[in-house]
Design a binder for these strands. Sequence first.
DNA 1: TCCGAAACCTAACGACCGTTAAGTAGGTAT
DNA 2: ATACCTACTTAACGGTCGTTAGGTTTCGGA
Lengths: 218, 218
Amino acid sequence: MTVTLHAVRPPTTDTDERLLDHALTLFAEKGYEAASVREIIEATGVTRPVLYYYCSSKEDLFKRLVHWKHDEAYRELGKNVNETKGCTNRLRAIMSGSFAFCATDPRVPRLMFQTHFGPTIPGISEFMAEVAKLRFMIVHQVMQEGLDAGELEGGDAASLSLIFCCIMDQHINVLVRMPKPRKRLTPELADSLVDVFLYGLGSGKRSRVSLPTFAADQ
Amino acid sequence: MTVTLHAVRPPTTDTDERLLDHALTLFAEKGYEAASVREIIEATGVTRPVLYYYCSSKEDLFKRLVHWKHDEAYRELGKNVNETKGCTNRLRAIMSGSFAFCATDPRVPRLMFQTHFGPTIPGISEFMAEVAKLRFMIVHQVMQEGLDAGELEGGDAASLSLIFCCIMDQHINVLVRMPKPRKRLTPELADSLVDVFLYGLGSGKRSRVSLPTFAADQ
DNA sequence: TCCGAAACCTAACGACCGTTAAGTAGGTAT
DNA sequence: ATACCTACTTAACGGTCGTTAGGTTTCGGA
């Protein structure tokens, strides 16, 4: 049981895709546990065994859905970052690119974050941690380059990445739950938040920040 | 149904308190929905009607528990802030005070954040939003004072509070899920994160940050 | 000594959950 | 025509959930 399917299986038929899409809507709205397969198949307009015809279980349905949407976002983000030069610009690309993707379909970040930050669900939480790690590594690499190039200072790449992701993810997480997230997750806000990350919000004389080392173990 | 009990009802008997404490453990570990009343009463060593003797429902059990622990933290935090003068020092007091409280009993932040950021649960999510707002208002007031005193600049009090809470809450949320959170949520890290908030992590010349206005409506 | 409230028990209730056994319509290759 | 695969159907299965009806013990006050 709970065999991880590493192979990505995008939707094959129209019914299949509608099933995944309605699953996205309901999972994003009520969470993995609270959204029942009965609701999903009812919204899609099919019967229950149809779902089990395309997916081996509810867990498999969820993973197919996340893979489907995540790969889309991940490909786009990676491309944007590679086309950009310099740490600051790359951070802006990550932040505004993520904002843009989340603004186009708020269901995706709603599902991602509430599953990632919500209660532990056996089989699901580990999967989401893996998915989140992929995105974190992009940020981590940009931070390391920024430190090596002398554009950043004050801590190791892991600490800096954590702070950056705190600001980015929580803004998405909070704003996407408010009305009209499209009006809130703007490129202007993204650029300003990168500025906050780089220069802070104090009016006083610039001080040298020195974060404690981030210990992965212990 | 779902009548909000505004009156706080702290534990009355030993059994009552043990019930709330084991509920905290299980809610923090598995989440509100996944932790069943059967598990809670089993861990406590009583039978099911005992739970319904002290609480009118599972939802009431949860709210009593959150009130119990939150009031404790809230009183302590408010006292620490009032004893401190100056925006920077107050922010340090909030951050390190929150870190200290969360380090003493990681179950509390685990329950708080996973319920607040997790999937919407009717009756519970609204309650948690109210609870979270109390803490946010403390931060908001300190930010407003900092702006008025000229210690802060670059945005309105709501935007600044959101950024500060992003950094603080997500660090708690992430670190409290890792092993030995007591070793991670240190006063040193708290002070450093306040420095990051004030001065940023860029090595370049100080730039003036200007966040877009935070619109509560629209 | 009797009473009643507080603190507990046993034993079910109905509702919903994820899942599946078994069968069928429709197209396609042999 | 027949065998076969895909895409679906009806109708249940066993399990867990939150909750409660109704009875028992304990014990301080009248």
